[in-house]
Amino acid sequence: MTEYKLVVVGAGGVGKSALTIQLIQNHFVDEYDPTIEDSYRKQVVIDGETCLLDILDTAGQEEYSAMRDQYMRTGEGFLCVFAINNTKSFEDIHHYREQIKRVKDSEDVPMVLVGNKCDLPSRTVDTKQAQDLARSYGIPFIETSAKTRQGVDDAFYTLVREIRKHKEKMSKDGKKKKKKSKTKCVIM
């Protein structure tokens, strides 16, 4: 069974824990209790493949930012979460993405942009803004509501699919490099 290491990042209060708990335990946590770091595991079937999701729910508070490099190193894919009623959390996505790329030393890291709290009427981040940002990053965008469960499975499952595509691409690139290195030079 394939294991996928997913990391949920975003500013404090955007609903990272609520999304994760909704996926794992099928219930909505409405009281806000700032996370330092929590880890969850769940076995699911995605596109006919049974897999184990190892999900790291991270601290959004700035005082825990020193811990970010460590979990970013171990993560295979990242859910970059903002709240649709919090423009600052949307603007912060850029910083999370840049930090992930720096730590992973790669421009090509599996990510999904997630606009959470889409059940709320007080939207300050337009869907088109988020779609445009995701398009500019070359990553999928999904709106979710941890409260109603809308888009929750889709967000995590899409990230797994992005990781699969990335692994497939990397193995193809690896095979191309191996083929090239088999060419021999004969000096007579």
Rank of each mutant, 00 (worst) to 15 (best):
E3V: 11
Y4G: 15
K5S: 09
L6A: 11
V7G: 04
V8H: 12
V8L: 07
V9C: 12
G10A: 09
G10D: 02
A11P: 07
A11N: 03
V14P: 13
G15E: 02
G15Y: 02
G15A: 08
G15I: 02
K16H: 00
K16V: 00
S17K: 00
S17N: 00
S17F: 01
A18I: 06
A18T: 07
A18D: 02
A18F: 00
L19P: 01
L19N: 14
T20C: 02
I21F: 02
Q22R: 09
Q22S: 11
L23M: 10
L23P: 00
I24K: 12
N26I: 03
H27G: 12
V29R: 00
D30H: 12
E31G: 02
Y32T: 00
D33V: 00
D33S: 00
P34E: 01
P34D: 01
T35V: 00
I36W: 00
E37G: 15
E37W: 11
E37Q: 15
D38E: 00
D38H: 01
S39P: 00
S39Y: 02
S39K: 10
S39Q: 10
Y40I: 00
Q43H: 08
Q43L: 04
Q43P: 11
V44Q: 14
I46H: 08
I46W: 12
D47T: 10
D47Y: 05
E49C: 09
E49D: 09
E49Y: 13
E49I: 09
T50P: 13
C51H: 14
L53D: 02
D54Y: 11
I55E: 00
L56C: 14
L56T: 15
L56H: 09
D57Y: 00
D57M: 00
T58H: 00
A59L: 00
Q61S: 14
Q61A: 14
E62K: 04
E63A: 03
Y64G: 01
Y64P: 01
Y64R: 01
S65G: 05
S65L: 05
M67K: 11
M67Y: 09
R68H: 02
R68E: 01
D69Q: 09
Y71R: 14
Y71N: 13
Y71H: 15
Y71P: 15
M72L: 02
M72H: 04
R73N: 12
R73K: 06
T74P: 04
G75R: 03
E76Y: 09
G77N: 01
F78I: 03
C80I: 08
C80T: 04
C80V: 08
F82E: 04
F82T: 14
A83H: 10
A83L: 03
N86F: 01
K88M: 05
F90C: 06
H95G: 14
R97E: 10
R97W: 14
R97D: 15
E98F: 01
Q99N: 05
Q99L: 14
I100R: 02
I100N: 03
K101T: 12
K101W: 10
K101I: 06
K101P: 01
K101R: 12
R102N: 11
D105F: 14
D105R: 04
E107R: 08
E107A: 09
D108C: 09
V109Y: 03
P110I: 04
P110G: 02
P110A: 04
V112C: 09
V112F: 05
L113T: 05
L113P: 02
N116C: 14
K117M: 15
K117R: 12
K117Q: 12
K117C: 13
C118N: 09
D119L: 10
L120W: 12
L120T: 09
L120M: 12
S122E: 11
S122H: 08
S122V: 06
S122K: 05
S122A: 10
T124H: 08
V125D: 10
V125K: 08
D126Q: 06
D126W: 06
T127K: 07
T127Y: 05
K128S: 07
K128P: 07
Q129M: 06
Q129F: 14
Q129P: 13
Q131M: 11
Q131D: 07
Q131A: 09
Q131N: 09
Q131R: 09
Q131H: 10
D132L: 05
D132A: 05
R135P: 07
R135S: 09
S136A: 14
S136Y: 11
S136F: 05
Y137L: 10
I142H: 15
I142M: 03
T144M: 04
S145V: 02
S145E: 15
S145Y: 07
G151R: 10
G151T: 04
V152W: 13
D154L: 07
A155H: 14
A155R: 02
A155L: 05
A155D: 02
F156E: 01
F156Q: 03
Y157L: 07
T158K: 09
T158G: 07
L159R: 03
L159Q: 03
V160T: 07
R161L: 11
R161T: 13
E162D: 07
R164S: 07
K165P: 01
H166W: 07
K167N: 07
E168D: 06
K169G: 09
M170L: 06
M170A: 15
K172E: 06
K172V: 11
G174W: 03
K175G: 11
K176N: 12
K176V: 14
K177N: 11
K177Y: 07
K177E: 06
K178I: 07
K180A: 06
K184W: 05
K184A: 03
C185M: 04
V186I: 15
I187K: 08
M188T: 08
